[in-house]
Every structure is written in C-alpha cells, then in structure tokens.
C-alpha cells in the first residue's frame, strides 16, 4: 500500500481550495471522457450549491451538466441505468442526507448490479456530496453515514480530507468501473492546500491511508474533519514529549489495514477518532481488525472517540456538544497514553 507524507516539496505545486481541486478533477476527466455527465439540483448554469460545477455548464452544455427535478431516488435510479449502458454519471447530491431517499437504489441496485450480471455490466457511477457536522446545518444536512455503505459489498467509499486527495481520488473514481461514494466534509470545502500541477495527472488510489503526522508512541486513525484536529492535538502533545502518529483513513472501503497494522506494530496503542456514531462504526471495525491481526502488538486496549449518538441539533451550543473538539481529542490521547 502506498502511504505518503504530503509535505508540498514537489515542484509546480499550487495552492487550491478543496472544492476547486475537486472541480479541476471533474473538469479534466470530463474533457478526457465525453461519456461523463453530472446530474443534480442546481449543478447546471448555477454551478452547484457548493460551486462543484462552476463554469462547467458553459464548457460542456446542458446534457452533461443536467439540472434535475428534486427527485433523489429518481435521478440516482436513472443514473444506475445510465451506468449500465455505457455512460458514466456523477450524481452531485449536495448532502448525503438527501441521497438517502435513494437508499434502496444504492443498496439493491447500484451495489449489486455488477454481481448480479456476473461481471458483464459495470457500474461506473460516482455519488458525491457533503457530509458532516458544522454550520448549524441541523438534522437533515449533517449526516455522515459512511459505515452504512462500507458495510455493503459492491461500494467504494472515500472521505478525502485535503485538496490534493479530493482531486486525486475523484479522478480515480472517474476512471474505475465500480460505484464510488465520494464524501466531502462540509468544513473542509474551503480548506486550502497544495495540489500538483495539471500535467501531473495524479490519481490517488483507493484503499490507502495517509500518514499525516509520523509518531512512535501511539496511533490515531482519524476520518474527515477529525484528521486536522487530531494533527493539531498531536502537535500539542509533542511539546510534552509524546509523539502521536496520525493516520488519515481517507478510504473507508476498501480500508487500508496494512498501514494501520504497521503503525500499531510500531506504537502499540490505537485511538480511532471519528465524528460519526460509535455503534457498528469505523472504530468498531478498525478495533476488531487490530484485535484479530495485531493483538500481541497492543500495549493498551484500543480506544474510540466518537460524536454523540444523536441526531444533529441546530443551535451552535448544541451542535458543538455533539461533535468532537481538539481538546476532547487531546484528552483521549492522554487517556490512551495513561493506559
């Protein structure tokens, strides 16, 4: 598995926002492949609620930037049929909460068509949009849900956290033959970061975690918006002489067990930091994998730190109370070291 510390020392790097980088990926791939089209609400002339398609309508026209009625089940089911017949749809669903109206289409059709057809049909569909807690978005615009999809055979599920990964992983999604859930935490959309030049045509493979901060004393596996907070907490702990290794899981399914196990073999301690719910979640899965395959490497029980098990409330005070702060992560790291 490829792991990398992305330190921006390469040549020709540009600083882009997450959304701009993802849009650049979409533009490059649409230029390259005339069978790619995008559907969603307001993704045409308007350029997308989150500017995901800004400027692309003018370049590619209404058939490839297709504004839809508000029918999530309908257009996701429609794109399923399109993917079965030679085109490559990108569903820009805005918020994953909305796409749940098409849960049956995703579970029963999209995830199973390749299997049901004995591999004679491909399902190259990309379902992309926002997840995550923030901005007083409240109950119907804040869900994470990725473990639900990681539970299902047939899906690829990614949660990129940097502009470089957003671009490189969207390009990978747009060249594969599997259905991909490409999930963008809303608090990361305007984050800036270095992105390789267009000529680099960088594809970042799925199934690879990224080491965001090397360390020797404990391993933190973080997801989405929790990655940067975990790195910040680790930097703070470094001042006390404790070096935490922070892994950005980024690919939920397939999951990079190898990098996690290698890190745990080095550190002997593991904390999973995930804004999403704890029961049956990624922490449970990672913990079980480590227990099965690296039990003897552990010096302490695996710990999980999750958002509160509740629908997401609106008021900033309540909203802050259900997600995770840098301070909470720092405390969890201290607790792990004290075990």
């Amino acid at each position: 598995m490829v792991t990398a510390v992305q330190n921006g020392t390469e040549t020709g790097m540009r600083e882009l926002t997450y959304t701009t980088a993802a849009r650049e990926a979409l533009d490059e791939e649409m230029e390259r492949n005339p069978r790619i089209f995008v559907v969603g609400e307001g993704i045409g002339e308007r350029g997308g609620n989150f500017n995901t398609t800004l400027g692309l309508y003018e370049k590619y026209g209404p058939e490839r930037l297709r504004d839809t009625p508000i029918v999530e089940r309908g257009f996701i089911g429609m794109c399923t049929g399109a993917a079965m017949t030679g085109t490559r749809p990108v569903v820009d669903f805005m918020f994953l909460d909305f796409a749940l109206d098409a849960f049956g289409e995703m579970v029963n059709q999209i995830a199973k068509i390749q299997y049901m057809s004995s591999g004679r049909l491909e399902m190259p569909i990309v379902l992309r949009g926002c997840i995550g807690i923030g901005g007083s978005s409240a109950t119907h615009h804040s869900g994470n849900y990725y473990p639900i999809f990681a539970h299902l055979p047939g899906f690829r599920v990614v949660v990129p956290t940097t502009p470089r990964d957003a671009k490189g992983m969207l390009k990978t999604a747009l060249r594969g033959s599997d259905p991909v859930l490409f999930l963008e935490h809303k608090l990361l959309l305007n984050a800036k970061g270095e992105v390789p030049p267009v000529e680099a045509d960088e594809l970042i493979p799925f199934g690879t975690a990224a080491i965001r901060r090397p360390g020797t004393d404990a391993t933190v596996v973080a997801i989405g918006a929790m990655v940067d907070k975990s790195v910040q907490a680790a930097e703070q702990l470094s001042q006390e002489g404790v070096e935490i290794e922070v892994l950005d899981l980024r690919s939920i399914a397939p999951m990079d067990e190898e990098t996690i196990l290698a890190s745990v073999a080095k550190t002997g301690r593991l904390l999973v930091v995930d804004e999403d719910f704890q029961p049956c979640g990624m922490g449970a899965e990672i913990s079980a994998v480590v227990m099965e395959k690296a039990f003897d490497e552990l010096d302490a029980p695996v710990q999980r730190l999750n958002g509160v098990f509740t629908p997401v409330p609106y008021s900033p005070v309540l909203e802050n109370a259900v997600t995770l702060s840098r301070e909470q992560i720092l405390q969890a790291m201290r607790d792990l070291m004290a075990e």
Partner: peptide
C-alpha cells in the same frame, strides 16, 4: 428485478445514455 419500480428509473437512464451518446 426483485424490487418493483427501480427498473422504470433504469430504463430512463439507459435512454439518457443513448441520447448523450
């Protein structure tokens, strides 16, 4: 299909492919 309804949407999507191509 074992589920009533989705094939109507999928047929629509195939139509979309044919129009696009």
């Amino acid at each position: 299909t074992g589920i009533v309804g989705p094939n109507i949407l999928q047929a629509t999507g195939a139509g979309y492919s044919f129009q696009l191509m």
